[in-house]
Amino acid sequence: MNEQLIEQITKMVVEKLQETKGLSETRKSDETMPVNLFAEAPVGRAVTVENPEADPAGAVTFHRTAEQKQPSAAPSQMTAAEACKKHDTKKQSDGKETELAELRKKTPARVGVGRAGSRPKTKTWLQFRLDHAAAVDAVYGEVPDELLSRLDLFQVHSRVADKEEYIRRPDLGRRLSDESKQTVMEKCKKGPTVQIVASNGLSAKAIEENLEDVYLSLEQSLRNLNIDMGTTFYVDKGRVALMDEIGEMLQPDVVVMLIGERPGLVSAESLSAYLCYQPRIGTIEADRMVISNIHKGGIPPVEAGAYLGTVIQKVLKYEASGVSLVNKEG
């Protein structure tokens, strides 16, 4: 089915739900839905439990599936003291609501979103489905050519034929195709101090959103530090360890690989920068290091680029990266 259509329908359903609830949420917040990675506040009263009718009149009988402590006493038996207590609980639940709001502020995780019986509320569930769909889209998306030409990057390919193969065969994502190897050897400066490589990896969205800011900021940082830079290029469907082959081919001191992270339900556009000192075929994973979580809601891409410059400076100083760097630093 058409992806846009699915999104439209989901949006419509969510809108309908909110309208019928008659909540004061404006439509504006609905319009921002696709980028609203997690709801800032749950809709309605978050911690209410919707109890099934205690005595349904119809033919359907409800059975308790879970053990429950003492169902609430009949209302007629409520004493003054209990009424007072009830008033207190209302106060308490208000307090709890502000406490929950505090907690929600501290994490993008879906906490305190309430429930309907034993399942999530429809809004929560749809939001979850939407975020999941965004994650899937990120994996199957493509990086726009316009971005690459704006940054003056040429494109090469790994040995992977399509996305399905990319996912099934990580080994093929770690090697350049023969044709690409030739292109790289022709176009790239040999033996630079720093070689930057970008790849969509598992999230094209991450590259689309963050590459420009990280790259320009990193470039500036390296220039300030007088560190020599090679010819940057973009690899379609690459894996992190592709840097080993590139290291072998171009003999740089440091390879920086800017690659889309596997998308999650909080962010589908998170970028990682993997670094390694003189990566060669057979380099062990412990010698790689990474700055992850580069996106709008994590480390701002511009700041990450600036910070990467100082990390590269350190790697060059100690002539080591990863665990070896930690050991040398003492």
């Binding site: 900021s217 500036q220 940082s221 220039r223 300030n224 480390i299 701002p300 511009v302 700041e303 680029g305 600036a306 910070y307 410059g309 100082t310």
Partner: peptide, 14 residues
């Protein structure tokens, strides 16, 4: 206020 000191500082130097 936000995490931007390094990049702004570096840009000024650049």
């Amino acid at each position: 206020q936000s995490d931007h000191a390094k990049v702004i500082g570096q840009t000024l130097v650049a």
